[in-house]
Simulated assay, not measured.
Amino acid sequence: MAGKAKAMGKKAGNRLKPVRTDPLESVGFVSKGDHNLLLDHKLQQEYFDKIVERYLSFCAHYDKDLDAAMASLPTGPSSDATRNPPISSRPATTTKGPNAPSPGPSAATELSNLLLALRKLREAVISSDSRTPVDFSQRVYVFSVRVAILAQHPPSYVPSLHYLIDTLHRSSYPLPESELREFITYLILDYACREDNMIAAFELRAHARRRYEFQSKTVDRLLSALLQDNWFVFWKVRNGVDSYMRNVINWAGDRVRRQALKAVGSAYINVEASWVLEGCTGENGWTWERLVETEKIGWEKEGEKIIIKRPKRKPEKKLDPITESAKP
């Protein structure tokens, strides 16, 4: 009996599947008391390599529509997915059949996990500053900024930009000139486009010019366009930059589009539909139905014309029944 029970226990044990743990979740936050792993530089490097590998896998998995995957994080009053990660961890697809892709986390969940992992690593790098090589810290923060900008996640990229420029860029170990200019640009554009704080943007540009000899025609043109409500130049600049800068500039997109529509509405009676759809939105993909739905416009479309306002008809003058002439 004992042998039979032992055999049954062995079979039951074999049926228990090992618990799979996500390597990115195997460590905690230093700020929450987890001092066991990420304060060692060798383990920091290994953890960073895992993050990079997962990010590359994420990009490969969603290569057909990477922009949508990168924009999948939930938004809220703080837009902070590291404090408010996606609730659902269901697979991104529920398609069944022999050719269905293997189940996995949704794009939003995976992206949130990557941002959380980068935050853990950044905390560890700061806590072990005296023992962590500066070049490694710089690489972590450079990568973190770029991923967070593509994910449109300011709580990750704004503090990282400040720390990278103000602390990790040192006279003894400076960032490459091209990277320093890149990250100063992001911070200036974030002030101007997301925070709508033109004073802070101009002050940072002036400070960067004095301290770092910073120059950027793109930044100059964009700040000027925002200051003058010149939506034509704004969209031209926005459409001519790379995806990182475009993602930061996009924070001002709704504001500029609405300002453009307001200006058109006050200046014209009717306009060409194509001019409104492309000139005011800065993109080719907008339809009239989408614009009406988004901006709650009360204008009417007749053929290829947009009727903004219809001129009021003058009341007809009544004829005098005796003279059959118009009464004065």
Rank of each mutant, 00 (worst) to 15 (best):
S137A: 14
D63G: 00
F232E: 15
S266Q: 12
L38N: 03
G104M: 03
N230M: 03
G33S: 13
R310Q: 12
E123H: 01
S172Q: 14
G279M: 11
K64R: 12
W235N: 04
D242M: 02
F48P: 00
R258A: 02
Q45H: 07
D135G: 00
W286K: 01
V264W: 15
E304T: 09
Y47S: 02
K11V: 12
S325P: 00
I188A: 05
A208R: 03
V256E: 08
I51T: 06
E46C: 02
P85I: 10
A12M: 15
H207R: 13
K4P: 00
I184Q: 09
Q152S: 15
T21L: 11
S137K: 11
I306Q: 06
T93S: 15
T94R: 13
L204H: 02
P321D: 02
L150N: 02
K4A: 10
P315I: 12
R90A: 15
P23C: 10
F232W: 03
E272Y: 04
G28E: 12
A81G: 00
G9D: 13
V256F: 07
I308A: 02
S79L: 11
F202N: 13
A192Y: 04
S266D: 11
L43D: 10
S172E: 15
P18F: 08
G282T: 06
Q228H: 08
T95C: 09
C193F: 06
D63E: 15
L114T: 03
K312E: 14
W251A: 11
A107M: 06
E46V: 02
E53I: 00
T94P: 00
A71E: 10
T167I: 14
P77I: 04
L38A: 03
R119H: 08
V233I: 14
R290S: 13
P85C: 10
G104E: 07
R290H: 11
V292W: 09
Y157L: 05
S88A: 14
G298L: 03
G240I: 01
D67F: 05
S160P: 01
I184N: 06
L43V: 05
R258I: 01
V145K: 02
Y163T: 08
A7F: 09
L37E: 13
F202R: 14
R290Q: 14
Y244Q: 08
L39D: 07
T287V: 05
N247W: 04
P174Y: 08
R122E: 08
A12L: 15
E316K: 13
A92N: 09
P101I: 03
A201Q: 04
V248R: 08
I249G: 06
N239L: 08
S127Y: 14
V140C: 05
D63C: 13
V19L: 13
P133E: 13
R90Y: 09
G9W: 07
R122C: 09
C280Y: 05
M198K: 10
F232V: 15
F202S: 12
R54Y: 06
N284Y: 07
L187D: 05
V134R: 14
P315R: 15
Y62W: 14
P103E: 07
K96Y: 11
T94V: 05
A192V: 01
R257I: 15
L38S: 03
E302D: 10
N270W: 11
T281K: 04
P85T: 10
